[in-house]
Amino acid sequence: MRRVFLKQAKRFPWITNVTLYGCLFAGGDFAHQCIAQREEIDWNHTRNVGVVAFSFHGNFNYFWLRGLERRFPGRSARMVLRKLFLDQTIASPLATTVFYTGVSFLEGKEDVLEDWRDKFLNTYKTGLMYWPFMQFLNFVLVPLYLRTAVMGCSAFLWAAFLCFSQESGDGTAAVALAWLLSPRTKLPPLDSREEK
């Protein structure tokens, strides 16, 4: 199976990388809902997260990583540090903004910027504890044709965190860890909570 995937990734890098990234990102929302022990999965929310992941995140990251490699080729410390700096100052804020505003838009929220205003800064700071390490490994160890797919594996956990933050967190790792480690009872479906 691995051999087939690698062959397809070399032959159709854009489709393979974007598809895997989008599936893993949407899977992060599904994992979050399973961990939250919901009585019923909110497939509309997972669909919305998937739409944002497929339409923006996967495509953006695919071309962004190629652009970085073209401008700063190689794996020398100097080149990797440049790529990390640009990734965290340009791509990370943009991706976080698109997640919060995109999902809010698809959910039909009246104020699509509300989650972004409330959680962006905390989420960005939390991402600075996660993404530089993950991207360092990506830039140093992974061939370019697989970088978006490997980034999708990291994005699976990140998407679960983002979905928690959007629903009931504040964008900080401390609140997410406290929630994860606390005993939980099954939550009612999201729709029934919104009606109250």
Rank of each mutant, 00 (worst) to 15 (best):
T126L: 13
Y130T: 13
L128T: 01
F161K: 01
M129H: 10
S168H: 07
Q135H: 13
L180D: 10
A149Y: 12
F133D: 11
F136T: 12
M129C: 06
G152D: 03
Q135V: 09
M134I: 03
C153D: 00
G171D: 05
G152H: 04
V142M: 00
C163D: 15
P132I: 08
Q166P: 07
L128H: 12
S154N: 14
M134H: 04
V142I: 10
Q166N: 09
M134G: 08
A155P: 01
M134Q: 09
P143I: 09
A178S: 14
M129N: 08
C153G: 10
P183R: 02
L144I: 07
A159M: 07
V140Q: 08
A160N: 09
E167A: 03
S165G: 01
Y145Q: 10
A160Q: 06
A159P: 06
T148K: 03
V142S: 00
D170G: 07
W131M: 04
V140S: 08
L181Q: 11
V140L: 08
S154E: 05
V175K: 12
T126R: 05
A174D: 15
P143L: 08
P143R: 01
S182T: 09
A159C: 03
F161T: 03
L181V: 07
T172D: 08
A178M: 11
L144Y: 00
L181C: 15
A174I: 13
D170H: 01
T148L: 04
L144M: 05
W131K: 02
T172P: 07
M134V: 08
F136N: 04
M151D: 14
A174E: 15
S168L: 05
A160C: 10
R147I: 05
P143M: 13
